[in-house]
């Protein structure tokens, strides 16, 4: 995350004056377990992409393949792992 601002640098009432900046809020550090994909087992069914509540599964849309995870925003809920029909995702404890 970028350097945290002091109280004098804030907008009145904490209003956010730019659109679409939720992306800058890195929620990935809330995670206690990280998903890891084994591409040898993966059949690219994209169930994980469809089920991820945080849009954190990265897919190559042209090729139609699952590529990996956006660890800046993945919260480690494990939904992808539990929905994967090929058991290709493992949840690894974060240090």
């Amino acid at each position: 995350m970028s350097k945290l601002k002091g109280w004098k640098e804030l907008t009145p009432g904490g209003i956010i004056t730019e659109a679409g900046n939720a992306r800058e809020y890195k929620t990935g550090d809330w995670r206690t377990e990280r998903p890891q994909v084994n591409k040898e087992k993966c059949i690219n069914c994209l169930f994980c992409w469809a089920y991820c509540p945080d849009a954190s599964v990265i897919v190559d849309a042209d090729k139609g393949v699952m590529v990996g995870f956006d660890y800046d925003h993945c919260k480690g809920c494990g939904i992808c792992a539990s929905t994967c029909p090929a058991k290709a995702i493992d949840m690894i404890p974060e240090r």
Partner: peptide, 14 residues
């Protein structure tokens, strides 16, 4: 945006 989530990182400053 008015009234967004404001946790331990900024609430105190606000």
């Amino acid at each position: 945006t008015y009234g967004p989530l404001d946790l331990f990182d900024y609430y105190f400053e606000h």
